[in-house]
Design a protein around this nucleic acid. Structure first.
Lengths: 236, 236
DNA sequence: GTTTTTATTCATCAGTTGATGATTAAACAC
DNA sequence: GTGTTTAATCATCAACTGATGAATAAAAAC
């Protein structure tokens, strides 16, 4: 007869601070992951903190302990990964500018701007996919999306535009900004993972095929920039 | 002394069916307008039927009377104006195809596709602005946006792609669909009215300046199509 | 002129929501 | 060792949510 061995997990959670050895650390990160998952699918109002807490296997009060309000939780989710890609994008543009010297091109700059994101998306990490879908939602949320996007991403975008000015010296400021706006829309929809193109193309194209997107997007957008931004002064 | 004239409006609403002459008809339309306004700003989950009812100055039960569920109301809002622009777009593409004959171009087709929407947006009717912002949100909603967009707009988009095939006879199907995807993203962000570009450009560009968008978008996008869709077979 | 249908408000429900103060126990500072 | 801080659950709240059946009165059908 086997001696009764403690049933593997009834997981009746203890109260109080957890043992350091209890090997279920990083509750905060677990909450952020669960929140990211839910927010990216249903947006800020489509999610209840109960759902998030349940998914993260913690009490709802813990969300308030770490993030104060639901809004605080959302903002924390949005900021967490932004720092990572912002740094990567800045570095990527810097590197390209240094390497290209005077032969800088719009396509090269745009490629440097897109690559960090599209590469990460192509790796297939679900949590990054969720995050990108979240950006897409925020970017198209009228009430407060513009403000949130600006706070998070404007420095990088100004860096991008500075590089584009070098590649397209005759471009007007308006043309540059509007062209970026088109780029932003195309990128965020591509990251939004709605399955839209899958249905439209009857399965021929797949939303998750970031390699196909990556191959086409920079040339497509760069061509648009060139068309718009040197239509007046420089002849084509 | 003036005789007491009935105080203009205490507007204690009567029960029962309204008098025909009561000049407050079209409750159904008023509800749809109020719902459109709220849904476009905060999305499906960010709106309560009470807010909509309050804005439309009706009881919440009336929303259920006409639209059964909250979802039914949302779908009715989304479908209402879709029929109008879908017809306009089909007609516009038809007309362009007939007029251009064999000298059909990608820019011409795309222009025919965009013009009905951008023209309407430029007219400045707030209710249409709300509707376009709603499309932008749905287009970037992962959970059910793709399905809703497909049900509503796919026929027109297949009509667009059929015309583009004529203008770009060497294009592969994948290239056409991906290029359309970029177009769709750029268009919906431009319609989303987040004030994003206003902030980014420090006021130089305005989200509401649909004339500026209309002047740039077709050339920008068409240039991208041409770059992608005849990069292989036909030389540039 | 009676009956039926339509359009509206009223009253209310059961379930959900974000939030918070109390409690608990481990970790940490001294 | 003792006291304080940190990290967690528990228990509960008042407000809100979508929805529904009943009541009402005008219009439409007969």
């Amino acid at each position: 007869m086997t001696v009764t061995r403690a049933r593997p997990a009834k997981r009746k959670p203890r109260r109080g601070r957890p043992l350091k050895s209890e090997a279920m650390p990083d509750m905060r990160e677990r909450i952020l992951d669960a929140a990211e998952d839910h927010f990216s699918r249903h947006g800020f109002w489509g999610v209840t903190i109960r759902e998030v807490a349940q998914d993260a296997k913690v009490d709802t009060a813990l969300l308030h302990y770490y993030f104060d309000t639901k809004r605080g939780l959302f903002d924390a989710v949005f900021a967490r990964r932004a720092e990572v890609i912002n740094r990567e994008r800045i570095d990527s543009i810097d590197a390209y500018e240094r390497a290209s010297g005077t032969s800088i091109t719009a396509e090269g700059v745009i490629n440097a701007f897109l690559q960090p994101i599209l590469e990460r998306a192509a790796l297939g990490d679900q949590r990054w996919h969720n995050y990108f879908a979240l950006i897409a939602q925020v970017n198209n949320t009228p009430a407060w999306g513009g403000e949130t996007m600006a706070r998070t991403f404007d420095p990088v975008i100004h860096r991008l535009i500075r590089a584009l000015r070098k590649a397209l010296p005759d471009a007007s400021e308006e043309d540059l900004y509007w062209s970026y706006h088109f780029l932003s829309g195309a990128l965020t929809l591509s990251l939004s993972q709605t399955g839209r193109i899958d249905r439209l193309s009857n399965g021929l194209c797949k939303s998750s095929d970031f390699e196909s997107i990556g191959r086409r997007m920079a040339p497509f957008i760069a061509s648009g920039f060139e068309k718009i931004c040197r239509g007046k002064v420089t002849a084509v």
